[in-house]
């Protein structure tokens, strides 16, 4: 009897511990220690022009920013491509949910876009769902612990993209070299115009079509922000190789995969452009840790 009591008691401890770890992972909000690095001004030195912007349902244009949205249909999937030309790389920005760096701090892409006055926004790398992986935003280093086997994307102050292997190049070194934003998700889709993934490369071993979010650069100042639908009857989604091939077809030189699946979302002038879904049945935005956006 004593022995069975031990097992019952231990089982209870195991259940309670598992419950705590689940809460710690998904619910309990935790603000991490913020780096001493001084953030660059979140607001750009480039000011909006006094002349009004020309805005249509699929485009935005002013003296500093030109955005053209195009919808493609490839691999039974709708792909939303925003071609972005900027007079200054400072206009390519990032924002954190609730303006805070931590775990289980999240907001919808559309909410963060509105809060930051974004013209165009896509979800970022959802850094908050992981304990490791470089996080640099607006020149501030928030997390320098390397995530093994992860390629990071650094957006440099001159607007160029640099793909590095975490652990091989330190986050501190990237910031010293002028990285404004560093994302830890990946993998890199294109490097120097060449496809950098194989048909067997998948995020989290997801060997399937899925919704995707990606960012690419033609040349500093000329970017592509992309979101692909998936998991629905209308859209299957893309494999990473499909995505890389598509980016290559656009003529992009460096492209990087951001958080996809239910996180994939694109907002243009306050409107959600794609069909974000986690389970394929309900079209709804998921809250995420961060966004990449174009704005002043």
């Amino acid at each position: 009897m004593k022995q069975s009591r031990f097992l019952i008691l231990y089982g209870l401890v195991l259940v309670l511990f598992t419950l705590y770890v689940a809460l710690d992972t998904f619910v309990i909000t935790r603000v991490y220690t913020v780096s001493d690095a001084t953030p660059q001004a979140a607001t750009s030195a480039v000011l909006p022009t006094t002349a009004p912007a020309i805005v249509t349902a699929t485009s935005y244009s002013d003296a500093n920013i030109t955005i053209t949205l195009t919808e493609y249909r490839e691999h039974d999937t709708t792909i939303y491509v925003a071609d972005v030309t900027l007079t200054s790389p400072e206009l390519l920005k990032t924002a954190l949910a609730e303006d805070s760096f931590g775990r289980n701090i999240s907001q919808k892409t559309s909410e963060m876009a509105e809060a930051n006055g974004a013209i165009l926004a896509i979800n970022g790398d959802y850094y908050g769902s992981r304990e490791r992986g470089y996080v640099v935003r607006n020149g501030a280093l928030y997390r320098s612990s390397a995530s093994s086997d992860t390629e990071a994307l650094a957006i440099m102050a001159d607007g160029s993209f640099r793909v590095v292997q975490e652990g091989v190049v330190a986050a501190e070194a990237l910031v010293e070299d002028g990285a404004m934003h560093v994302f830890s998700f990946g993998p890199a889709l294109l490097v120097d115009g060449e496809i950098a993934v194989t048909t067997r490369d998948e995020v989290g071993k997801a060997m399937e079509d899925n919704p995707r979010t990606a960012i690419g650069v033609y040349e500093p100042g000329h970017y592509v922000l992309l979101v692909a639908d998936g998991r629905t009857r209308q859209s299957d989604g893309l494999t990473l190789y499909d995505l890389a091939e598509f980016m290559q077809g656009l003529g992009v030189t460096t492209a990087y995969n951001l958080d996809g699946g239910g996180s994939s979302s694109m907002v243009f002038m306050g409107e959600i452009i794609n069909n974000p879904t986690t389970n394929g049945r309900k079209i709804t935005e998921r809250s995420v840790s961060d966004i990449v956006y174009i704005g002043y």
Partner: peptide
């Protein structure tokens, strides 16, 4: 055995969700 089994399943849940927790 129970600890390793529960731990493995829970680690799987976190991996499939795309998250990690060092407490595992």
């Amino acid at each position: 055995t129970a600890t390793l089994t529960v731990g493995s399943i829970f680690e799987g849940v976190l991996a499939i969700y795309g998250t990690t927790n060092s407490l595992t």
